[in-house]
């Protein structure tokens, strides 16, 4: 199972990197979002993908899943959600102001 997920993480990273290197703003945002998802999966895998009961005291189970990676991912997902929202709003503002979504056009120069 870990091997499968590792391959999946690799594929997600590859797609994310490809998208970030393109010129279109929206693709870059999608790429960054994909990379964060790959990282989240990696955290989940880092705790080991074993099956066990929820780690709550008082249950009858004898072995539990590691709760820490899940807590970390929850936080990371929320943060990623917020940052992606900021990026989307910002890119929309940029599109309104500059009338382009091509990063080549947004290089900027010193005379402004």
């Amino acid at each position: 199972m870990e091997t499968m997920i590792s391959i999946l993480i690799g594929i997600l990273f590859a797609i994310g990197t490809y998208l970030i290197l393109t010129k279109q703003l929206l693709r870059i945002i999608l790429g960054s979002s994909l990379i964060t998802h790959a990282v989240n999966l990696l955290i989940l895998t880092s705790g080991g993908l074993k099956d066990g009961a929820p780690p709550l005291i008082g249950g009858k189970a004898t072995h539990f899943t590691d709760a820490l990676p899940q807590a970390l991912i929850l936080t990371a997902i929320v943060i990623n959600f917020g940052v992606t929202a900021i990026l989307l709003v910002l890119s929309y503002r940029i599109y309104q102001t500059f009338r382009t979504d091509d990063m080549e056009m947004l290089r900027g120069n010193d005379d402004e």
Partner: peptide, 16 residues
């Protein structure tokens, strides 16, 4: 508050 606010902010300019 945060989730609804984010979605509303993104969708606010729909008319434009």
């Amino acid at each position: 508050g945060t989730a609804v606010n984010i979605i509303l902010t993104i969708s606010e300019d729909e008319s434009e």
